[in-house]
Each structure stands twice: as structure tokens, then as C-alpha cells.
Amino acid sequence: MTGTTFVIGAGPGIGQAVARRFAEDGASVAVLARSRSTVDGAVAAVEQTGGTALGLLADAADEASLRAGLDAAVERLGVPDVLVYNAAWVRYDRPGELSAAELTATLRVNVVGAVSAVTHLAPRMAAAGGGTVLFTSGMPTPRAGATSLSLGKAALRAARSVLADEFGPRGVHLATVTVGGPVSPGSALDADRIAEHYLRLARQPAGAWEHDVLIEGGTVE
């Protein structure tokens, strides 16, 4: 596969693994993250596999920052064929432990940023002939001990459905990859194994699109 892939949220783990895998497959890759250290780490991870990546700063919780980063990536690499939203605020809290403002802050990263990114780029992807948008999801079973994350990931899956209803008929494939547990090297939930599903989804032709892949305990449903 050739083309261009943007990865928002390119920290160690799934983000870097996805960036590496698409670069290995011949894609031009842009990685976007909030901190310079994360961006530099992702670029280095791609380069270690023989690929190249454009690294850009962007805060998924700040709409202006996120859109500016995406615009910069488009200016350098063109409209993406694949957009991956992997940004997340992973914290473990129980009902009532967070203030309304704190809970809202987690949702800005876990779901609102995804909607902002898609509504900013999907019209251009559709105009260019289509493409694929992939969200990293989790928490298939909501838990009280991970309240903010459970709410955010459930909302992310709902956002995918809404956005697919809007942009799917225009040729943009939207799917979630729901990871049903902690990412762990060498396990069924190894980041490199998970990244293979992103590439597989991006290769699917219209008419054969999957919309939510659940990876849990070595099974795919």
C-alpha cells in the first residue's frame, strides 16, 4: 500500500507501532502529539525500521492546535489516505472522584478531539476520492474503576457510528479498533500485532468494510 497516513497520538505502544507498520508498507507518515519528546520518539521509531516520518506538535484537547497541526501535515504531505486517532487520556477513577471540569477535560482528549479531527479532514478526504479513519478504542465492558475512560471510549464508538453515517456514503471508511485489555509486549495484545489490524482495515475495499474490531485474549470478533 502507498499513500499518506496521519497518526494522532503517537506515543510508545499502539501509536508508534501503527506509524511504523504503515511506513513499512510504503506510506508517507505524519505523527502528531502534544509533547516534543513523544513526537521525536515516534519519528525515531519509524526511522529505525527504515522509514521516514514527519513529526508535528498538536494538542488533541485544543481544537485550534489540532487543526493547525493537521493543516501543516496536509501542506507537507497532502490529504491523508488514512487518519488514525490514537490519542487518549488513560486514568483510573471512580464515579464522583473527578469534578465536572476534570471529567470534561478527559472527554476532550478521548472523544471530542476525534470528532474535531474527522470533521476537519474527512470532507477533504472525500473530495480526494475517499479514505479510511481508524479510532483506537477500548473498555468494551465499562467499569466503575475506570469511569472517565469507560465513558470516553463508549462515546468514541458512538462518534464513529455518527461520523460513518455522515461520511461513509462519501467514500470514507470509519472503524474502531477496540483493544480489550492492557497492551503488553509478546502477548496477544502486543502493539505490533494490534497494528496489523489497522493496516488490514485500511486495505479493505468498499463493500467489505468492517466497522468495529474487538481484539481480546487473542481473538478477533
Rank of each mutant, 00 (worst) to 15 (best):
Q48A: 15
Q48T: 14
T49R: 14
G50F: 07
G51H: 04
G51P: 00
A53R: 01
L54W: 03
G55T: 05
G55P: 03
L56N: 02
L57T: 13
A58D: 06
A60E: 00
A61V: 04
E63T: 14
A64M: 11
L66Y: 01
R67H: 10
L70D: 02
A72G: 11
L77Q: 09
G78F: 07
G78L: 07
V79Y: 01
V90I: 15
Y92G: 08
R94S: 12
R94K: 14
G96M: 11
L98P: 06
A100T: 15
E102Y: 08
E102R: 12
T104H: 15
T106P: 00
T106M: 01
L107H: 06
V109M: 05
N110I: 05
V111N: 01
T119H: 14
P123M: 12
M125D: 11
A126R: 07
A127G: 14
A127L: 12
V133S: 00
L134V: 11
L134Y: 03
F135E: 00
F135H: 05
G138N: 06
G138A: 15
G138Y: 02
M139F: 04
R143W: 08
R143A: 14
R143V: 13
T147K: 05
S150K: 04
L151H: 01
G152F: 00
A154F: 02
L156R: 00
L163D: 01
D165Y: 10
E166T: 14
E166A: 13
E166F: 01
F167V: 02
G168P: 05
G168Q: 06
P169K: 07
P169T: 09
R170W: 08
R170N: 08
R170A: 14
H173Q: 10
L174S: 00
A175T: 09
T176E: 06
T178D: 09
V179K: 03
V179D: 02
G180A: 11
S187H: 10
S187A: 13
A188C: 13
D190V: 09
D190W: 01
A191I: 05
